[in-house]
């Protein structure tokens, strides 16, 4: 139970008012048009989406799972940061391709890249999936806040979920992406400042960096200080194959789109940047900040470990970072620490609410139900769907409750393991067609269910580790989409030439490039980039 002084209450309430006010302040800009409500008019300088990337990817559950990894595995846990590594490649490959396409959403990209019925089916499928997924993520992050408040203030678990997600929805509904992005900037600065401060305070509480190292060795856990401590190729707690998987997946994933579930958040920020160069810089620097953040967190978690070395209950030691702040900060600073936790929470939930509403509004409503919708109708529908995603997040959040780890299992494998390679192929291989891509998505949902739950339950398949499941799913899903691709016709050549000329994808596009040259459509890349920027400004 955390005790707040008068100054602590002041900091917390002042911060809530500042955040909601700074978001609502952009009400007039947000309601100007659909492009403003969902993409801030496509005119942002690189540092705004960059800060938003960092702030959105720092959520209430992030220090929990990161603390869990580092408490269990020491420095080996730092390789979890490789998850963000795909941005380093994507910033100069798929980010630029996607930005040139001017697609508002990843679902819209489907109807630019593929042709005919499968392209439309893929757009509808992905839009519906994204609405549900963002409800799930907002619920997941929301209930993490519920758990923190239950531990800190003895509140019922739903208080933290409902109160703080609703506060986010106020400015996400009134100002849309403008409110989200402006609030993200002050939230990103606040949280980075506190993250650094907690690590300094934690290191001091544990006696300084040298004392931490000595105490870890005295506890007979020297492997915690060695990030290259492997227990075998696939065996033990620290297998080498896990690290190899963690390097291969982000590296090659950066050549594709939607290879990581983070892509959908990034895609919105890519299209909100004012130029292609800005989009690249924002993705690269946002991810770099995430990796630096993790390195700073390690200090606080290792300090917590030497102060509390014998904890075995994951639900307790995953609160390491929160406990260092609440237990070691002096009165007055505790309230500021809670304000930073609110910043971490608000930035993620507000972004996710707006993202879920964008797929429901731009793709399902504006593309399928009312293609002639006015900007006023689009903004109104955007606000309604922000509210519906919020209510959906309450449903998922209350279902998750304290079973965060059980649901993490579901979240990771439901999503992208089997579609990882098709998501790369759609960018680098002209012959990969709409039917092949759609079959990969549908097959992935079915096969991951079989591999992860059904077959092990009946003893047909042994319980595999997550990285082993990844490789198995990749092969099994490929056995579906590769035959489907070759048994169906390539996409319409007019469509392929159009997407090639506009977006300049890398990889195996020979026949399409030759056709584009024959039609005299190929210009210099610089001219294409300039035209894309002019069109974006016009739309903004």
């Amino acid at each position: 139970m955390v005790h707040f002084s008068g100054l602590d209450y002041f900091w917390s309430i002042a911060y809530i008012l500042l955040t909601v006010f700074s978001g609502v302040l952009f009400y007039r800009l947000g309601k100007r048009s659909g492009a403003d409500f969902f993409l801030a008019g496509r005119g942002l300088p690189w540092w705004l989406p960059a800060t938003s990337n960092f702030a959105t990817h720092t959520a209430t559950d992030t220090p929990m799972w990161f603390s869990g990894w580092v408490y269990r595995s020491g420095m080996y846990g730092i390789w979890g940061s490789l998850f963000a590594g795909w941005c380093a490649i994507s910033a100069f490959v798929s980010t630029r391709i996607f930005r040139r396409s001017l697609a508002s959403t990843q679902a819209e990209w489907q109807t630019l890249r593929f042709s005919g019925l499968p392209a439309e089916l893929m757009r509808g499928w992905m839009a519906g999936w994204q609405v549900a997924l963002n409800m799930f993520i907002a619920g997941w992050v929301g209930i993490a806040m519920g758990n923190v408040c239950a531990w800190a203030f003895n509140w019922p678990i739903w208080y933290g979920l409902v109160i703080f997600s609703t506060l986010c929805a106020i400015y996400a509904m009134t100002s849309g992406f403008w409110g989200v992005i402006i609030a993200d900037v002050q939230q990103g600065i606040t949280m980075l400042f506190i993250i650094i401060l907690v690590s300094i305070w934690a290191a001091m509480a544990a006696g300084g960096p040298t004392a931490i190292v000595e105490k870890i060795q005295a506890l007979n856990r020297p492997e915690m200080l060695n990030p290259f401590h492997f227990t075998g190729f696939v065996t033990g707690d620290y297998p080498l194959l896990w690290l190899i998987t963690m390097i291969i997946v982000p590296f090659f994933g950066g050549f594709g789109m939607a290879t990581h579930s983070d892509w959908f958040v990034e895609a919105q920020r890519i299209q909100s940047a004012d130029t292609i160069k800005s989009a690249s810089y924002s993705i690269w620097s946002g991810a770099a900040a995430v990796i630096v953040r993790n390195s700073i967190w390690v200090i606080a978690v290792l300090a917590f470990f030497v102060l509390n070395p014998y904890m075995t209950d994951e639900s307790q030691y995953q609160l390491a970072w929160f406990r260092m702040g609440f237990e070691y900060f002096p009165p007055g600073l505790v309230g500021f620490f809670f304000a930073a936790i609110l910043a971490i929470h608000f930035s993620t939930v507000s972004g996710i609410l707006n993202l879920g509403a964008m797929y429901a509004t731009r793709d399902l409503y504006n593309h399928y139900i009312n293609p002639k919708a006015t900007d006023k109708q689009i903004v109104r529908m955007g606000r309604l769907w922000t509210l519906l995603v919020l209510l959906g997040s309450f449903f998922f959040g209350m279902m998750i409750g304290k079973d965060v780890t059980k649901w993490l299992f579901f979240a990771l494998w439901l999503m992208t393991a089997g579609t990882w390679l098709p998501n790369i192929l759609q960018v680098i291989w002209w012959r990969f067609n709409g039917w092949g891509y759609l079959s990969a998505w549908v097959a992935n949902l079915g096969i991951c269910w079989l591999v992860v739950w059904i077959l092990p339950a009946f003893g047909i398949l042994p319980d595999l580790k997550d990285f082993q499941q990844f490789w198995l799913l990749m092969v099994l899903v490929a056995l579906v989409y590769l035959p489907v691709t070759f048994l169906t016709k390539p996409d319409d050549m007019d469509r392929l030439v159009k997407v090639y000329v506009q977006t300049r994808p890398i990889g195996f596009w020979g026949p399409v490039r030759r056709e584009a040259e024959r039609r005299g459509l190929l210009q210099k890349k610089e001219e294409i980039d300039l035209r894309a920027e002019q069109e974006a400004r016009k739309e903004g």
Binding site: L117, E120, L121, M122, R123, G124, W125, M126, A127, G128, W129, V131, A132, L133, M135, F136, D363, L364, H367, Y368, I369, F396, M399, W407, F410, L414, L445, W449, W453
Partner: peptide, 27 residues
Amino acid sequence: VVIGMTVIYFFSLSGLIFAYIYYKKNK
């Protein structure tokens, strides 16, 4: 797993059906 999958399938298939109706109507 069953509840999570059901919700995800419900939304994904709803989107797919919207798309199919739109495509047929346009054609």
